[in-house]
Design a protein around this nucleic acid. Sequence first.
DNA 1: GGGCGGCGATACCTTCCCGGTATTGATCCG
DNA 2: CGGATCAATACCGGGAAGGTATCGCCGCCC
Lengths: 283, 283
Amino acid sequence: METRELRYFVAVAEELHFGRAAQRLGIAQPPLSRAIRQLERRLGAALLERTSRTVALTEAGSVLLAEGRAALDAVEAAERRTRRAALAPAGRGGLVLVTKASASRELLAELLDAYAAEPGAVPVDVLLCGPAEQERLLREGRADVALLHRPFDSTAGFHTEELDTEGQVVVLPAGHPLTARTHVHMADITDLPGLPLPRWPDPDGTYPPGPGPQVRDHAQLLQLVALGRACAVSPQSCRAQLHGDLAAVPVLDAPNVTTVIAWPPHSRSTAVADLVRTATRLR
Amino acid sequence: METRELRYFVAVAEELHFGRAAQRLGIAQPPLSRAIRQLERRLGAALLERTSRTVALTEAGSVLLAEGRAALDAVEAAERRTRRAALAPAGRGGLVLVTKASASRELLAELLDAYAAEPGAVPVDVLLCGPAEQERLLREGRADVALLHRPFDSTAGFHTEELDTEGQVVVLPAGHPLTARTHVHMADITDLPGLPLPRWPDPDGTYPPGPGPQVRDHAQLLQLVALGRACAVSPQSCRAQLHGDLAAVPVLDAPNVTTVIAWPPHSRSTAVADLVRTATRLR
DNA sequence: GGGCGGCGATACCTTCCCGGTATTGATCCG
DNA sequence: CGGATCAATACCGGGAAGGTATCGCCGCCC
């Protein structure tokens, strides 16, 4: 199977419309129809149910859509990482580390300092982004290594090492009655009047339905909390980033959050290996 | 980048010889030279250092070799899984579960029984193989789900759920002096006269250098132990498979072994999801 | 040291596949 | 029933992939 065929199929499967898919691909519709038909013949499998008015995925088609996206990602990552390796031989051109803006600054600073002190350390570019983007950046080869937070982030497809585990706190507007408590439980905060828990975007960028404001990053969230429009359950270490308008109370039964350092398998970079080794020694 | 180009490059990078690579690919040498050159131009990166007598990988080339193999695996897996989905719509054609021949039979039997009792269960084919093959089978789309054992198996690239954790025992010929002990430490057994620890094959099928017999599976290993030619450190559950000639003693400081159920990300099969859910409920 | 052999690159040709335009055929809608 | 929409088919042209022949370079060996 050629990547061209995969790209064509993914486009059609996403659009469910040969004309629009062809437009998106920058080709005419007839060659696209032919390519898909040929792909189906070679696979010996019907991928699309077409009437002359509508296109739908078959069971096999939806498998190929999911698997094909992953395969295309892998090819793209191979290409991008090769380009980067050529520009920055032996990892000497700097690592890109991606992490959430809300992540523990101390842990990150500690890691960067310790790594910089290693012999043979290379410059590290830190890229901050929203929760959903890290995975994509790492998967596509735009970043070398990431700090992820389980259970929020999926670590499937990466090598990981655990760095730290911490409990969670609820962040509330200063002066809220609950801030007088030494601790709370999840049940105490799931239905606070006027302070709903926010909604985070799914990996595809859409928001699940339900109440609560839509947020894209942690700064937005804290802003909303300060405005008295939401409350937030966050890792303890976020306390360092709270200012006067905000207060935090430990949530005893919230799941622990584990910070892991993640990197793509097949990484041949000694710089990544050094950074990971430094990170695990910090514990 | 097209998979054809990737296949060509991987062949050359593995052979380090254009002629042999071309032969392996079933094409003539000149088109291969051209294809590689064109790939290098498009990537803007030198992949191979060639003199007229020798071919060597550049830094970027070795990155592309590793990443390209993974990408080709992903494409191949997409193809294979699509074919299987077409033959067996809605996962109705049976799941393939792959595990080591040495794995705990009780856990597996329990899992298969519990899953078979689920509504909507499909037949499960159990595939037993040596330790190194499981990963490949799962990655290539020949199997749907695997039971792996950390820390021996790498789970990178898969979704996993932990099923069980157990200590390890040392397996010795019956009557060996150490069998009188209630427990031992690693230091007690690393240098037993005449009973070396065996060597397992690397993922590429070769054996690391060093003393100790080469083994390919657990049955071979137990055979060697019974013959008094080796000793073995294995998970406790292997005791169920020991016969009269063999004895087991707990090793206090050996790393715990975790049995996990692993499946490829992007799996769209409800049957896999059901099986995993059943497994996690067993604990 | 000169001829030989191995190996990758180049030149040139052929073929086939990809893509474009024009058209047909089917189905939904008014 | 006629128009609109959308996928499939027919047909053609260009470019890319593959093959053969050959060159150029460099170790090797007598």
